[in-house]
Design a protein around this nucleic acid. Sequence first.
DNA 1: TTCCATTCGGGTAATTGGGGGA
DNA 2: GATGTCCCAATTACCCGAATGG
Lengths: 62, 62
Amino acid sequence: MLPGEVAALLRVDPKTVTRWAATGRIPSIRTPGGHRRFPRAAVMGLLTATAPDNPPNPENSR
Amino acid sequence: MLPGEVAALLRVDPKTVTRWAATGRIPSIRTPGGHRRFPRAAVMGLLTATAPDNPPNPENSR
DNA sequence: TTCCATTCGGGTAATTGGGGGA
DNA sequence: GATGTCCCAATTACCCGAATGG
């Protein structure tokens, strides 16, 4: 998966994704020219949202 | 979407949006750096919930 | 081979996160 | 109980020119 795709999915700058790879926060593969490729699974793990309990259930909220 | 955008849209302080995410009142994903991204749909839900005259679920707001 | 879009690298400004207090 | 504003540190976004990939 390309840096631009990951950036678009997480609403960040492609440069930020590159920084994550540089700091080892996300696994990445390097092309012979130095460009990066990211495993789709790792990217999917990042966009896992915390699902809050905010349904019509007042008793649960209190 | 970004915390600042949500804050501007709901006309609250970005810190308040952060607190909502922290208390689980709005779903959010975290970047590896710790910043938050909010699903547009969830923001719209909050926007509807804070609407002065069009609350779909008044009991949900409490 | 040339073509264009994207990514590379570094540097700087703006935003965000967390804690504490009004 | 919830929100807005203060601090500082960290993260992120946009600028440039040059190189890579298909």
